[in-house]
Write a protein that binds this DNA or RNA. Structure first.
Length: 303
DNA sequence: GTTGAGCGTT
């Protein structure tokens, strides 16, 4: 093979430019790049397969496909093309990851007027984004509001926004914070190996039947048992066939029949957060400090 | 029938 010119273009349909080869018939990438800055290779459409083929590139030297470059038009490869695709992939996976770890959590709404109803809460918070749960905590006997409630949003961005400001609701300033329970659950951290297939479902309402719970939890895996204490005690136990399913749900707040229930391990006797919490009703300085900090922390991810 | 920092009927 001898020195010649090969036809190179940025696109198959564009007018090609002739590029000189070396004496041995190869073409230097640097020569291509001299005319097409940023080029990182060449490709061409195979007359046989009609597919695009890459030109062999070894240490900056482009080698003719067969014995000859022929009369084909070679198309310039740019790293941008692939890079852009990579970026899109990264962005997509980043969003997925974001969605995965930045789940929303219930927010406690402190300082509500006594008169504020769940509808009022929903109306107010809907101005920030999609609301998927609201509660006003009331005295069971009188039905009077306790002056606080909970709200949960569909999107994490909404949650961040809502937590970042005070809220004027029915004439009073209210605060939305992460509930204290969150803090301890995160502290529980990379969990102890208590591979239970049974989970504790807290904050159940009386209208949740065993069948409701079974139907709901089926989506996560095979449910082998549902236990609801009688008389009503606002909690239940759900047992899965697979312990990994059970474990994966621990720490979650799930919404069943419009109510946020809390999933935790079914049989933690010692060093569990409920124990800790009931033993120290918030008077310890160190705990108070942790509460304090928790108010300014966004929830960290936990698997 | 009241109240105003807090924490959700385990």
């Amino acid at each position: 093979m001898s020195e010649c010119y090969i036809r190179v273009a940025e696109d198959e349909n564009e007018e090609p430019m002739e590029i000189p080869s070396e004496e041995d018939g190869t073409v230097l990438l640097s020569t291509v790049a001299a005319q097409f800055p940023g080029a990182c290779g060449l490709r061409y459409r195979s007359p046989v397969s009609q597919c695009m083929r890459g030109v062999r590139l070894v240490e900056g030297v482009l080698h003719a496909p067969d014995s000859d470059w022929g009369n084909l038009v070679y198309v310039v490869n740019y790293p941008k093309d692939n890079k852009r695709k990579m970026d899109e992939m990264d962005a997509a996976s980043a969003v997925k990851i974001k969605r995965g770890i930045q789940k929303t959590s219930d927010l406690i709404v402190l300082g509500l007027p006594w008169k504020t109803s769940e509808q009022d809460l929903k109306d107010y918070f809907s101005t920030f984004g999609e609301v998927i749960m609201v509660q006003v905590k009331r005295d069971v006997k009188t039905g009077n509001s306790k002056g606080f409630g909970f709200v949960r949003f569909a999107d994490y961005e909404t949650q961040i926004k809502v937590m970042s400001q005070r809220h004027m609701i029915d004439g009073r300033w209210c605060d939305c914070k992460l509930p204290n329970s969150k803090y301890f659950l995160e502290q529980a951290g990379p969990d102890e190996p208590m591979r239970s297939r049974k989970v504790f479902v807290g904050r159940c309402t009386e209208d949740m039947t065993a069948d409701d719970l079974r139907q709901f939890f089926m989506q996560y895996g095979e449910v082998t048992d549902v236990f609801i204490p009688k008389p009503f005690r606002a909690f239940a136990f759900v047992t899965f066939a697979d312990d990994q399913v059970a474990q994966s749900l621990c720490g979650e707040d799930l919404i069943i029949k419009g109510t946020s229930v809390h999933i935790s391990n079914a049989e933690p006797k010692h060093n569990n957060i409920h124990h800790l919490f009931s033993n120290f009703p918030g008077r310890s300085p160190s705990l108070a400090a942790m509460f304090e900090r928790s108010q300014y922390q966004y929830p960290s991810s936990h698997v």
